[in-house]
Structure formats: structure tokens, C-alpha cells
Amino acid sequence: MFALTARPLQSVDLSPLIPDQLAGKSIAKIKAIELHCGNRSIAVEQLFKVSGNDSENISFLRSSNQLNFIGSEMSYGHIEIRGAVGDFLGKRMKGGRIHVHGNAGNWVGNGMAEGKIEITGDAGDFIGAARPGDQHGMSNGIICVSGNAGDRTGDRMRRGIIIIHGNAGDYCGSRLLAGTIIVLGIAGKLTGYGMKRGTIILGRRPKSIAVTFNTCGQLKMEFLRLLFRQLTHMGRQFKAFNELGPEVERLAGDFACGGKGEILVLQ
């Protein structure tokens, strides 16, 4: 357990504090781990009060939005965070579960390959997206945001599911390569801009859609029943899915990029 004792002035890279790296380490050793803070290095004990002995279940208390890269590249275990978190939560994670009781910054689940991230508050821009230089965004796993999401949700995402219970910002699912994005609130401008394949499921018709999307009319899509039933098994917060689908308005696009993707607006 890591309880933040001093609010860091600059962003801190917490990527060494994952179950994979803490396993078998004594408290003294963990306290001495060096973290990048701004352009300097500081020891864990300068920021956190460290206690407990279960390296598989890590919790961060009184977390701050300056704490970046939490759960980066973790492959198993559970990280629970009380308070806000910074950017790059669960970057390239390969398994395990992260639960945030608060808001998250930008780039949640950047390049994640497996695992599950739950955020009870809002999340920033670029959820599950590809960072400049990367070939694609998240390649599998589930990200679930109970609040609202920022812009560019799922930009260049490759596989996996992103669920936003609230509203999504502009360019939701832009340049989507494949995968599923579900937004139960309102999505912002130019949803699905430049998407190649993949599915964006919306609770309501978005503010605007690019002219390169074609409406295919009202359809009954049976796969939604299967998808939603599967989701309801995953936890209480997914109960709402019981009453949704399978009738949708289907929009195919983006025809500027092949047009194999679809936006499904739930009726």
C-alpha cells in the first residue's frame, strides 16, 4: 500500500511500482526505488508511506493527478487507486486489473494488450489511443469509464472494448483500426472520423457526423444482444446494458478510409 505523503510538484513516473516488479522485494527495498520526477530522480519514500506485504494487490491512497504511468506494463495483479491519477494509466499493460476511484488523466490504457481498467470518475483525452510513434493503440482488453471521456477516445485503437457511460468528446473513435467503443451519453463532433474498421455504439445520435458516413437505415443487430449480455455478467455497473439493443440505426464509414467501419446508434 502506498499512501501519498507529499504532493509532488512535477509529474512522477510510477512505472516501477507494479506487481511484476515489487514481487519478492522488502519494504526497505521498495522505499529505495528511484522514480523519475520531472527531470530528476527521487526515492519512493520521499513521496509515499509504504506498508503491507501483498505485492499482488497494490493500492495508492490520496493519489494525485501528478502520478503518471501507474500500472505501466503490469501483467498480473490488481492496482486500486483512491483519488485522481495522471496520464498513461495502464500503459502497455499485459494483464491484471486497475480500479480508479476518481478521475484519470489522458492516455488511459495507451497501447494496452490485455487486462481491465475501471474508472469511476471521468477520463481525459486519448483513451486507449496510439501515442505518436506507435503503430496502433490498445490491442486488447477492456476500459470502462463511469463518467465522461475527453477527445479522441480510441484513436487508432486495434482491438478491445472501451465503454464510456457518460459523454465522449470530439473525434471519438478517430482513425479506428478495429475494436469496439460504446458511448452511452452524447458523443462530440466528427465521431468515427477516419475510421477504417471497427464498431462505435452510441446511446444517442451524435452532434455531427462526417459527410463520408452513409446511413444504412434501421436494423436489428442480433450480435448486440450477445455482446450486451456478456457485458452484464462483468459487474454491477453494466446492468444498464440489459435493456439496450438490438435495434439500431447503422451508419457505415468512413468512406474516405475504406468504409468498413460502422456507427450504431441505439434506438
Binding site: D13, H36, N39, R40, S41, R131, P132, G133, D134
Partner: peptide
């Protein structure tokens, strides 16, 4: 510029003598 992942995966901290 083309290979930002090389840079972000290997950060070097500043010390009293050396730059970051």
C-alpha cells in the same frame, strides 16, 4: 523525431552535475 518511443522508454534524470 521518427522514433519517439526510443526516447520515452529510456529517460535519464538530471543530477547536480549532469543534465537530463
Amino acid at each position: 523525431m521518427m522514433f519517439p518511443e526510443d526516447h520515452r522508454n529510456d529517460p535519464v534524470s538530471r543530477t547536480t552535475r549532469t543534465r537530463a
